[in-house]
Design a binder for these strands. Structure first.
Lengths: 253, 253
DNA sequence: GCTGTTATGCGTAGACCATACGCAGAACTA
DNA sequence: TAGTTCTGCGTATGGTCTACGCATAACAGC
């Protein structure tokens, strides 16, 4: 009752509304010298080049040859800019599933597409997300994911839950992978030597009597050689899809 | 070959080494007026009260009646302090699995324990984690998790992968839940009205022809009533454990 | 063509932030 | 007692976001 909830729901930031094509420009006043997409593209360029930490309002403005405060005519806050950066950073959604794919193949392809987007733009993982997706492309990804489950016997709520489960997994796995990469760059170590070095460090720290299971894992050489991160990704994804498959079979049969 | 890798592996920050009980204090000089645990506790207190964003070096120092720069004698940087905050924020690990529990019950209990820790201290989710765990309690959680899989036919590497899968899921689910809570607080909306409001907003934005699957989900009223977040958590966890169970059966049989 | 309205570009300034550096003094060793 | 070493912390630098307000440009209506 506190907020305006007549039929419009929560208030949408102006820049997001314009991303949906709502809200046309009033004809008065001087022509804008920039546009929201221009600013977002510049911010994405900065993040691509120097990481998310380099994205400051002044840096983005410099990229455009504009003054810092000029940006605030287009985006309401830095957080709003970040949300729009995420939207364009993911890129266009992967498209509907191929007709010859069953739900599992389609969902696998979808997960790999998100994985690839996050691999190319690892700064996406560092953007603090502050709510469910409301930008056009983000919802486009959701749409394409939901379509993968179209033919199945799952309820609509279950489809959504499954998608949430998978996108969460993809994000998480990508986060771990990029942390290894960034850590190795920061420490000046070969990426292939990162996990082995971590294994040696933990082995040196822990007392085998207090950490028997961990000690056993390390003794088995689990972290000693660098595994292909893609194998790790496939492993977890297949476990989850096995679980989803079990549910679908139960609903079908 | 670039870094010092004789037998010590990567260099450990001083405050972390002292958390493991290594590195005793040299006997010279004035007695320290504070200690690392004192500082970390104060920082945790600030985060508990006002969120992670309120944790600045000056705020923590004020909490202790000390000067800002005094903290830097104990922790090398704010990031180091954050790492130590996470270690104590999680609290002690849940302990080894109960003898009467099978792996699935044990792992479920472990996941709920982490879920609960993250629910009580949602600022833990906002700490940018910058690498695999190296602090004592963090590795303690890992140890207790690995023990849940002790009797199974999984390989050591598979146990680690399963644990990574589950802890990632728990974190992800907790993140989503806390975002809803924080969003409702920020918007001044009842938490139970948050997801329905989101559903109405998305329904208003999307064109049913371009987003048919999404439209169908919303029409089915998926977001209309607020589901119990615990049910959502249980759903995803059971899917993952079903997948793990399938793997264990394959390895056993 | 003139006037009023409105939107833009952006300069200034305030309130934070992390942290590099260096100095005064305390507590130990020899 | 002299020398060494470590603590506490004041000062200063360079960065952040953004509130506010002013000059100006472009349109609408008369």
């Amino acid at each position: 009752m506190a907020a305006k909830t007549d039929d419009s729901g929560p208030v949408l930031p102006a820049s997001i509304e314009s991303a949906w094509g709502l809200r046309e420009r009033p004809p008065k006043g001087p022509r804008p010298g920039m546009s929201v997409p221009t600013i977002v593209d510049a911010a994405v360029r900065v993040a691509d080049a120097d990481g998310l930490a380099a994205v400051s309002m002044s840096r983005v403005a410099k990229e455009l040859g504009a003054a810092t405060m000029a940006l605030y005519r287009y985006v309401g806050s830095k957080d709003e800019l970040l949300m729009l950066m995420v939207d364009t950073g993911y890129g266009p959604p992967p498209g509907p599933p191929a007709p010859e794919d069953d739900w599992r193949a389609a969902l696998t392809r979808w997960a790999w597409a998100e994985h690839e987007a996050l691999r190319q733009r690892s700064w996406l993982l560092h953007v603090p997300i502050s709510g469910p997706p409301i930008t056009p492309q983000q919802l486009g990804w959701m749409e394409d994911g939901l379509r993968c489950l179209d033919g199945t016997a799952l309820g609509e709520g279950e489809k959504m839950s499954v998608l949430l489960l998978i996108t969460g997994y993809v994000r998480n796995e990508a986060t771990l992978t990029s942390q290894v990469a960034e850590g190795s760059r920061a420490a000046g170590v070969e990426p292939s030597e990162m996990m082995p070095a971590y294994g040696r460090l933990v082995a040196r720290l822990i007392d085998p009597a207090r950490f028997p299971a961990l000690h056993r894992v390390l003794s088995a050489g689990v972290l000693a050689q660098d595994d292909d991160p893609d194998d790790e990704f496939t492993f977890g994804l297949d476990r989850i899809l096995d679980g989803v498959e079990a549910l679908i079979r139960r609903r079908t049969g």
